[in-house]
């Protein structure tokens, strides 16, 4: 493994963690999955990386997706609102909603490889970091079994939604 290859993994791993918009939305996916319980709690973390990678692939192939920044901000707003209101749509609707947002995140973040770095390790790092953020959300979501935890999760959803509004404001400015 060459030095550039190791750097590729680190770059890919740190990229999603360093963007607060991405962090908020990914953690919200985990929180929502934890609120919804099975099977959503595992369908969302399985489906999200795949659809996100499809978004990244579209970006790499030069397929433009309009309104990326708005889409990412909207994802934080709607996912945060879903957690805040503890919404329970059918699983198909939930998966489709999360999937659409995954395309925006993959398109925006999955394609920024520095010259000389390994594309494979960058991709693996990027996907693994995103998965870890989902796991963080699910881990926090464990508190949903207690009444105070349910309130806490709703408050966390509100924080995510407010963050989304902030990013939307920045995108519009």
């Amino acid at each position: 493994m060459q030095q550039g290859e190791a750097a590729g993994f680190l770059t890919g791993f740190l990229h999603p963690i360093s963007g607060l918009d991405h962090v908020l939305a990914m953690v919200a996916v985990g929180l929502w999955g934890a609120q919804l319980g099975a099977p959503a709690i595992w369908v969302l973390p399985v489906a999200f990386p795949l659809v996100m990678a499809m978004g990244g692939m579209l970006g790499l192939m030069g397929v433009a997706v309009p309104g990326i920044e708005y889409g990412i901000a909207t994802s934080a707003i709607l996912l945060g609102a879903a957690v805040m209101l503890e919404m329970r749509p059918p699983l198909v609707v939930t998966a489709m909603l999360v999937g659409v947002f995954a395309i925006f995140h993959g398109h925006a973040h999955g394609t920024e490889l520095a010259p000389g770095q390994s594309a494979l390790l960058y991709s693996m790092g990027f996907v693994m970091a995103t998965g870890c953020l989902h796991a963080l959300g699910i881990g926090i979501g464990v508190v949903h079994r207690w009444t105070w935890g349910q309130k806490l999760l709703r408050a966390a959803g509100a924080v995510v939604a407010v963050g989304g509004v902030f990013f939307m404001w920045k995108a519009l400015a």
């Binding site: 973390p45 399985v46 990678a53 499809m54 692939m57 790499l60 192939m61 394609t111 693996m124 990027f126």
Partner: peptide, 20 residues
Amino acid sequence: RVAGSWIAASGLLMLGWSFR
């Protein structure tokens, strides 16, 4: 199975890099 999802997603992104 989630690990499988990560592997497939990495492959999909890698495919994109190959096309690019």
